[in-house]
Design a protein around this nucleic acid. Sequence first.
DNA 1: TTGAAAGCGCTAACAA
DNA 2: TTGTTAGCGCTTTCAA
Lengths: 352, 352
Amino acid sequence: MTDNNNIRIKDIAKLAGVSVGTVDRVIHKRGKVSEEVKEKIEKVLSETGYKPNLLARTLGSKKGIKIAVIMPNPEQDEYWALAFTGITQSLEDWSQYNLQIDNHFFDLFDSSSFREAAENALSQTPDGLVCAPIFHKETLEFFSQQNQDNIPYVLCNTFIKELSPISFIGQDLYQSGRLAGELISIGGTDKSHVAILHIQENIENSMHLKAKEQGLRDILEPKYEISSHDIKKMDPALIREQIEQILIDENLGGIFVSTSSALHEVASILENMGRSDIRLIGYDLLEKNLSYLKRGVINFLINQNPKRMTLTGIGHLSNHLLFQKELPENELFPLEIISRENMETYLNSRIH
Amino acid sequence: MTDNNNIRIKDIAKLAGVSVGTVDRVIHKRGKVSEEVKEKIEKVLSETGYKPNLLARTLGSKKGIKIAVIMPNPEQDEYWALAFTGITQSLEDWSQYNLQIDNHFFDLFDSSSFREAAENALSQTPDGLVCAPIFHKETLEFFSQQNQDNIPYVLCNTFIKELSPISFIGQDLYQSGRLAGELISIGGTDKSHVAILHIQENIENSMHLKAKEQGLRDILEPKYEISSHDIKKMDPALIREQIEQILIDENLGGIFVSTSSALHEVASILENMGRSDIRLIGYDLLEKNLSYLKRGVINFLINQNPKRMTLTGIGHLSNHLLFQKELPENELFPLEIISRENMETYLNSRIH
DNA sequence: TTGAAAGCGCTAACAA
DNA sequence: TTGTTAGCGCTTTCAA
């Protein structure tokens, strides 16, 4: 084995003619050091290229870390169930650092439940927060008012320009829409209409979906005529009705469903009507989506990678808390194209 | 901060009425423990669900690790240059564990240089090896004969069924070929011929390319007529000539180049001849490939993710060496489809 | 076969 | 403002 011939704090102390305590104070800016001594130590520090042993640091400051997660209830939605698997796995990945994760789930249909979950999270004084800010207004309120202790937080899934988390993790939604447009038009179609379906719990929070829409429009217009439809996710029968309405259009060549949710409803209708002439593009490796992808009813899925999202979120936060590592301000995942022929390779890989 | 209320070795010792030294001996099977005591300790161990603090373990046994990498010269080939960026990054990622990496490059055109590189690597008694086994015969010889000290090793890129590395990292080549087939046939073409081009340094080692070929055939035959061409990568002019020969076929609707290498040559010819009727599919985010992808000459790239490959290789090996973590026998990466519209999102992401 | 004790490099409380 | 020292949990050497 390699012997550890690194420069240690002790060496720095000797070189600077001071004690380790003083060096430690300089390194951590704990004050109470004369300017003169401070400068000398800093000089030695940079000359030797001192790098702390993070193992020893973590061990010495007998800290573990406690992270609170605020996200939609995984039982309510398969997308968030996938996201939750990332939480589970990060617990394993970071097990050696005695990491504790407290989950606080909220109801996708109920914005007040978000407040509750968030306040609960805070009340347990976590060292950091990972949050999926589904409800724009409530999130804003929470992070600008409640979080006065300045607990570091990471935001996942939805970008919120008014906030400054230590890191945002998600995807470029505009580009995602462009990609969807490209995927619809590959090889060309003879039909010239394309419909965008925004199907979700609360239509108020659909701003980010409009970014996807714009991307698609910029690719397909004016060659294609685009129509956009906001559909509130409630009664499946009601959704069906609205979709069937849209399908009356004989000239419809493609449908883009902007969220993973309820894509399978659309697929089911298309399949039942035998409309294999319509290209269908949507999001995420949900079970039902995959089965329609396999049967060719859905042509492509774009993977938003919810598992990797939470995994990376916890990872970044842990690195920040434990090792003071610098994080990317934005971690934008690639837009993964899933087709019938590569879906298994995604399912089989450790992170998907 | 959370206090670390874990069970420590000390606690185990107290519960079992022995000393920490003895507990340690049992945990690490360092022998010299009476059967009776051993059983008692093991009982306590499992009852308490003891989990060692890996930080302390690593710190206590003042080991660093030294990993030797055996791979093609990054200056010779852009694919391997990308792979090399993974090495660089893993050095950062693992910097806290005092990881040392020694690179041993070999010449893609010269199998004897592989032997040399491999022996060199071994002579420095590394704790583990990461190897890209381009030369089948030589690799087999090396790992079955030279590596008698049983230094743990990870194999990247090319699967070799006769060997048992602690982990293999790569992709499913057969499935990769199937995907290529699907990508060629999306939307349908009126032309019914497809050509597969295997372009590489040494044709002898093309076994794994045949797996890709088989995948493509299984998707496209008998609807399409497939022709396969082995082209030795030497003089670019010579390559051109052979490719132009193939392009004479008026009925050619698609080309699949099975390696990242020289794909741009094919693209350049297609572009010059104005043959935009021919679908072109190939591998990897090499600079030239990307520019042809952007211009629509190349329709899709499949990403073999060389950077992530080496990054994961070093990561697995480090986890094994440092933390005795269990590794997946095979880590098969997803087959990433790169199009004009998602390429930037891959380039912008931390690992691509 | 066992136990005691001195590290590993760093932190943080306490003294000076 | 500075130095000293006792940990953190584990490994490993030495002595018993």
